[in-house]
């Protein structure tokens, strides 16, 4: 089996008394497409935000490329209130900020699109190149980095061509139709040169035709850029079609994991989605 690129161990996220994610562990191997599914409010986005460094978990650890990027244990007030498991297993506090995690090679998109709305499509993608640029303020201001800047612009243009947004490169991002905004968000994430792409409900609000297009698009960029993809998604057609493996969360707890076929026939997953008859 290929190398593990992302590993989450015993992630617990507790807000006050509410345990949003309880003891969630998972692994993503290089080159896979892995999906995280679950009914509304199951804690998918919270788990996602922990992995990308937006929230520090209450307990647990996250590894990227075999390097520990996040680790925490219940402290302070949380020590008494902690309602999760595996207390005492983790003793280190490591909190990489989202920008540091992006720098390591993890790029993400957002559930409710977060583009740089009043900037052009081209600038949206070009901004993502800033992180990898070596210039400091002085050299950037006085254009001593002209070569690098030119290279970045060229790469941005190429990227836009690949994702099919070159014809709208000078449009303001918020003026694009919804589907294209989703594509742009993925293009912007790709511009950070990631190894792992995290997609938070990429097909949210899309009609079946747009979803089909997106499915093909994700497959295509995955191959073209040699990516590993981890995503949250509600559209089951999309999930079942492109995922190699699936994790299922319900009420913050992992209830199943496996290949699409296994998940489709898993009794607990069906119960979580459809409910259980009361008299059973």
């Amino acid at each position: 089996m290929s190398k593990t690129i992302l590993k989450a161990e015993d992630i617990t996220m507790q807000f006050g008394g509410v345990v949003a994610v309880n003891n969630f562990s998972m692994e993503v191997h290089e080159g896979e497409i892995v999906a995280l599914i679950g009914p509304n409010g199951a804690g998918k986005t919270t788990a996602f935000n922990v992995i990308t460094g937006v929230y520090a978990p209450t307990n647990g650890a996250v590894y990227f490329d075999e390097q520990m990027i996040i680790s925490n244990y219940p402290q302070g007030k949380m020590k008494k209130m902690y309602a999760g498991e595996n207390e005492g297993k983790y003793t280190k506090k490591i909190e990489k900020t989202p920008d540091q995690i992006t720098k390591l090679g993890v790029a993400r998109t957002f559930q409710n699109i977060r583009l740089f709305k009043s900037l052009t499509v081209f600038d949206n993608v070009l901004i993502a190149k800033h992180m990898r640029s070596k210039a400091n303020v002085f050299s950037a201001t006085f254009r001593l980095n002209a070569k690098e800047e030119k290279k970045n612009r060229e790469e941005t243009r190429k990227l836009l061509e690949i994702v099919g947004l070159l014809d709208v490169q000078n449009e303001i991002a918020s003026s694009l139709p919804y589907g294209k905004q989703r594509h742009l968000e993925i293009a912007r994430a790709l511009a950070t040169e990631p190894k792992l792409l995290l997609l938070d409900e990429p097909a949210a609000g899309m009609n079946p035709q747009e979803t089909d297009e997106l499915t093909a698009f994700i497959k295509r960029v995955k191959e073209q850029f040699g990516l590993t993809v981890f995503m949250i998604e509600h559209h089951m057609d999309l999930v079942m079609e492109i995922s190699d493996r699936i994790y299922v969360l319900d009420f913050g707890k992992p209830i199943a994991s496996g290949t699409p076929d296994e998940i489709q026939n898993n009794k607990r997953v069906i119960e979580a989605y459809l409910g259980v008859p009361e008299d059973e």
């Binding site: 957002f110 977060r114 900037l119 800033h130 992180m131 950070t192």
Partner: peptide, 20 residues
């Protein structure tokens, strides 16, 4: 490039941070 990063922060801090 830095000016663009500033504008990104103005537009959306969370997205800017996610872009490194």
């Amino acid at each position: 490039s830095f000016g663009r990063a500033f504008k990104a922060i103005r537009e959306d801090e969370i997205a800017a941070e996610a872009m490194g």
